[in-house]
């Protein structure tokens, strides 16, 4: 029983990291990325390959995955960020589809659709994290670290620049800010934080395949951020907890099981629509009047 809940907390924690890192883009930088699952996947594959071939040490896997994701995102975002708004949404959608194709087709590295199996148990400073409770502890610590990193980042001059760009890109550029560089750095940081979630996922499930990193997941993470409240610290955390626990909560209820999945999805969908109509800032956001 304890282990079941430990696992549930771990999975929720991973979603929280995803949502917090995406919120940095959607909520603070005004960049609407639909490719978050792609970076999550890169993080997971890096951790899986490292663990299968060299070591399952988290203190190595996490930094390596973060650096790889940040580098990959820079490669892509530097050109893509030249365009605004809807074009970036479209570009990131395209990127997500292409990333999935690469995960699926690059057999020699990703194992194709059959994926990578038998990922060993994670280690922290040489101690095995085989117990679900220990792994949950590490996950919670990492969620806290990621949240803290975002909070600190927002207090710096860089954080102020980001919000300036979000609120008025033209004014920020006129004030001498290098918009493209600031945005690219934001994307790189967000991807690096997202990679942390990928590493945890790979070790938690011990099995990585492309089907875990689809557009649907990007959308789900986006829903977490939006429902919780973009541009707030607590919003994505609450959003992730809500969306992750909804299936578990529903499965305890005596509903006709063949329709549970659909009902869940319909609930997400309705929540998104109703929130956008009545409370576009999300559950945790201030109900400010927009102008």
């Amino acid at each position: 029983m304890v282990n079941y809940f430990a696992n549930l907390v771990t999975v929720t924690g991973i979603s929280m990291i995803l949502a917090i890192s995406l919120n940095l883009l959607i909520g603070y930088a005004g960049i609407f990325s639909m490719a978050h699952a792609a970076f999550y996947g890169v993080g997971a594959y890096v951790a899986a390959l490292l663990a299968l071939h060299y070591t399952a040490e988290l203190t190595l896997a996490v930094p390596l995955a973060m650096v790889t994701c940040a580098a990959a995102s820079l490669l892509i975002s530097l050109p893509a960020l030249r365009v605004r708004g809807e074009y970036f949404v479209a570009a990131s959608l395209g990127l997500q589809v292409i990333a999935f194709t690469v995960f699926e087709q690059w057999h020699s590295v990703t194992g194709g659709l059959s994926g990578l199996i038998g990922i060993p148990v994670a280690e922290l400073f040489g101690y095995s994290l085989a117990s679900p409770l220990a792994f949950m502890g590490v996950t919670i610590a990492l969620v806290a670290l990621v949240a803290l990193a975002v909070i600190c980042l927002l207090r710096t001059a860089f954080g102020r620049d980001l919000r300036a760009i979000r609120d008025d890109e033209t004014a920020a550029a006129a004030a001498g800010k290098n918009v493209a560089v600031i945005k690219s750095i934001a994307v790189a940081i967000s991807s690096a934080l997202c990679a942390v979630a990928g590493v945890l996922y790979a070790f938690n499930i011990a099995f990585v395949n492309p089907e875990s990193f689809t557009l649907n997941l990007s959308v789900l993470v986006m829903a977490m951020v939006i429902i919780g409240g973009a541009g707030t610290i607590t919003g994505p955390i609450i959003g992730a907890a809500l969306i992750q626990c909804l299936p578990a909560a529903l499965s305890w209820l005596p509903l006709p099981p063949q329709n549970i999945g659909y009902l869940q999805q319909i609930l997400y969908g309705l929540a998104m629509v109703l929130l956008m109509i009545y409370r576009p800032a999300g559950l945790m956001g201030k109900a400010r009047s927009k102008g």
């Binding site: 959308v219 986006m222 939006i226 999805q265 319909i266 997400y268 969908g269 309705l270 929540a271 998104m272 629509v273 956008m276 109509i277």
Partner: peptide, 9 residues
């Protein structure tokens, strides 16, 4: 986002 929600429903 609202439009997306409609699609999901």
């Amino acid at each position: 986002v609202a439009s997306f929600g409609v699609g999901v429903v």
